[in-house]
C-alpha cells in the first residue's frame, strides 16, 4: 500500500538513487560504445534509445533561434522532456542533472565547514528572488545567442558538457576546453556557494521552467499546521537553492527536489507536501 508518510521520509533516498543511476548511465553509454553496442547513443543534449529520439528543449530553442526554421522531427523529440516538465516541474534538474548531483557533494558537512572557515561566510537568511530576474537572464542569453549567431546554449549547458566530456574521456579524446569551463564554474560555486548557476543562469532549467501551468507539481504549504517556524526553519535551511518554501514566488526557482518536504515530515508537522493543485494558503 502506498504510504505518503513513508514516501516523504524516503524521498531523498529515492532521489539520490535516481541521481546515482543517471550518473552511472552517462558512464555506461560510452562504455557500451567502446564494446561496439550502439543502441543507446547520445549525450544529455540529445539521446536516442533505439529509434526513440529525445532532445533537450533548450537545444530546440537554440536551433530555432540560430537556423530560424522549425524542424518537425526536432520538435517531436522534445515532447517527452516537455511533458515531464508540464507534469512534475523541473525534476530533471533535481533528480537527474549530473551538475546538480556533483554540486550536492559540496553540501557534505566537512566541505561546508571548510567553506565557512576559508571564506568567512555567514549564514544568511533565505529569500526568494524576484521571478523577473530569472526571465530577464534567460531572455538575455537568447538575445545574445541570436546576435552572435553561435551555439551559446551548447557551450554553457552543464548537463550536456558533463555528459559529452564523460564520453570524450571514456573513449579517449581527452579533456576538452569544456571541461575547463565546467571546472571554473564549479570552483566558483565552491567559492560563492549560492548555487547561482542553477538558480539564475542555466538555460536548460530555464527552458524547462517555461512549461509550467497551474496544475504542475508544486510544493504546497499549509500554514495552519506549521509549528517550528518561530525558532527554526528546517525547510529553508535544507533548501539547496537557498529558497524559502513558505513564501510566495518559489517558482520558477524551485526545482521540486523535495528536501524541504522531507525535513518537514521529520518534524512531524507536515505543513509542506507535493501537490498538483495549490492549497488555499498559497
Amino acid at each position: 500500500m502506498f504510504s505518503q508518510v513513508k514516501f516523504y521520509r524516503n524521498l531523498n533516498k529515492y532521489r539520490k538513487g535516481i541521481q546515482l543511476f543517471s550518473l552511472l548511465f552517462l558512464i555506461m553509454v560510452p562504455v557500451l560504445i567502446l564494446v561496439d553496442i550502439r543502441y543507446i547513443v547520445g549525450t544529455l543534449y540529445s539521446i536516442s534509445f533505439w529509434d526513440l529520439d529525445i532532445v533537450d528543449p533548450s537545444m530546440v530553442i537554440q536551433t530555432i533561434v540560430l537556423s530560424k526554421e522549425f524542424y518537425i522531427p526536432l520538435l517531436f523529440a522534445a515532447i517527452i522532456p516537455v511533458l515531464l516538465a508540464l507534469v512534475f516541474g523541473r525534476v530533471f534538474c533535481s533528480w537527474m542533472c549530473p551538475y546538480n548531483t556533483l554540486l550536492e557533494l559540496l553540501e557534505l558537512r566537512t566541505i561546508k565547514r571548510f567553506q565557512r572557515k576559508i571564506f568567512k561566510r555567514k549564514k544568511s537568511k533565505n529569500k526568494n528572488p524576484r521571478t523577473l530576474i530569472y526571465w530577464i537572464v534567460f531572455a538575455a542569453i537568447i538575445v545574445f545567442t541570436f546576435l552572435i549567431g553561435l551555439p551559446v546554449f551548447t557551450w554553457i549547458s552543464m548537463p550536456g558538457i558533463i555528459s559529452s566530456e564523460i564520453f570524450a574521456i571514456v573513449v579517449g579524446f581527452g579533456i576538452g576546453i569544456d571541461t575547463l569551463l565546467f571546472g571554473a564554474i564549479f570552483l566558483s560555486e565552491v567559492v560563492i556557494g549560492k548555487r547561482y548557476w542553477c538558480k539564475y543562469i542555466c538555460p536548460v532549467g530555464a527552458t524547462l521552467a517555461l512549461f509550467r501551468t497551474k496544475y504542475t507539481l508544486k510544493i504546497s504549504y499549509d500554514e495552519s499546521v506549521c509549528d517550528c517556524a518561530a525558532y527554526a526553519e528546517p525547510c529553508a535551511s535544507n533548501c539547496p537553492l537557498n529558497l524559502t518554501p513558505k513564501e510566495a514566488m518559489l517558482y520558477p526557482y524551485c526545482f521540486n527536489c523535495g528536501r524541504c518536504i522531507k525535513v518537514c515530515e521529520q518534524t512531524g508537522n507536515r505543513a509542506l507536501s507535493f501537490a498538483f493543485v495549490a492549497s488555499k494558503n498559497k
Binding site: 553509454v29 560510452p30 560504445i33 561496439d36 550502439r38 547513443v41 547520445g42 549525450t43 543534449y45 540529445s46 539521446i47 536516442s48 532532445v55 533537450d56 537545444m59 537554440q62 536551433t63 540560430l66 537556423s67 524542424y71 549567431g149 553561435l150 551555439p151 546554449f153 551548447t154 550536456g160 559529452s164 564520453f167 570524450a168 579524446f173 576538452g176 576546453i177 569544456d178
Partner: peptide
C-alpha cells in the same frame, strides 16, 4: 547553426571516423 554537438553521429559511427573538431577550428570547436 543546427549542430548542437550532441555527439550522436560520433557514437553511432562503427569505424570511429567522426571526431570532434579541436580548438584549432575556432568557433566550430566540438
Amino acid at each position: 547553426d543546427k549542430c548542437i554537438q550532441c555527439n550522436k553521429c560520433l557514437q553511432i559511427c562503427p569505424y570511429d571516423c567522426i571526431v570532434p573538431a579541436g580548438l584549432e577550428y575556432g568557433t566550430s570547436y566540438g
